[in-house]
Design a protein around this nucleic acid. Structure first.
Lengths: 147, 147
DNA sequence: AAGATATTAGTGTATATACACGTTTAATTC
DNA sequence: GAATTAAACGTGTATATACACTAATATCTT
């Protein structure tokens, strides 16, 4: 993140929206760096991880579980399908597609897990457990803003 | 945000990164909805607003002030240039481009301001001033994670 | 002044996000 | 059972994000 400077002139940006977006980008960058050796993005790791918990599952249901847009999930799945980490095939209901992890997907998940765990633990240490907990509660409340 | 459901089965997603990303999306959605009548996205409003404070300014400097990536700024500027809200022209230093608001840009900003202000105020009311303040402090700290 | 270095911007590529629209298939209604 | 409605998915489009690479220009060094 070469664009971030410690000393930023005239930076009084009180927009709460931009502030959380910036923090979101920073945390994402932090996780991505640590996940880099796995070849997975944090969204991809998350997709695999959620899939592991609920597979086989339709795309719509998976999107709801992950609380992301259905069409975003559709697009995010593509690189994982191409690299053979997941598959999505129609079952009885020809409308829906059942998504599952492949063996390679399970392996990728196992491989990436300690990296993600380190990111997670580092963040907890950086912020502090109690404060992070309060933070997460507020994040939940903010998420509800869009309902 | 049709994909968000109040009752989500098996949703124990402790990934801090995804949590803040979700909250970020939700807040963005909230601001976008309120800004909709202005025809501006929240990033665009922010670009115009920052520009108003520091124009004329080069793209690199503006990116640093806004704490966004230089190339992201470049891309985000394009719709605003096309719709005639800003201009970017080389000055003495032929490498850099000085970005300024057009009259239409100033008008758009004036028009959008009360909408943004309402979003901002609503959020403050929803979260609570004290809690929001603590939240913002933590966001700052998190932003520093990427330095 | 010539060559090396640094600065500034643009673009190719890839992922992330989501709205609007269309298509296919299943379920419901009459 | 035919017509309607609903559900599930895909895609076009637009914005947001950022890394790698390139091109142009300015500055510095000797």
């Amino acid at each position: 993140m070469t664009h971030i400077v410690k000393c930023n002139p005239k930076s009084l940006n009180p927009c709460h929206c931009l502030n959380i977006r910036r923090a979101s980008r920073a945390i994402t960058h932090f996780y991505e760096k640590l996940l880099e050796p796995s070849g997975l993005k944090v969204t991809q790791y998350s997709l695999l991880r959620n899939l592991e918990l609920v597979e086989p599952v339709s795309m719509s249901v998976l999107a709801k579980i992950m609380r992301i847009d259905r069409t975003t999930l559709n697009r995010n799945m593509k690189p994982l399908i191409i690299s053979g980490l997941i598959t999505a095939n129609s079952g009885e209901d020809l409308r829906s597609k059942q998504v599952i992890l492949t063996e390679a997907g399970k392996a990728a998940l196992l491989n990436a897990w300690p990296l993600w765990d380190e990111a997670q633990a580092s963040l907890e240490k950086y912020v502090g457990a109690a404060e992070l907990d309060a933070f997460e509660k507020l994040l939940s409340k903010l998420e509800a803003l869009a309902l």
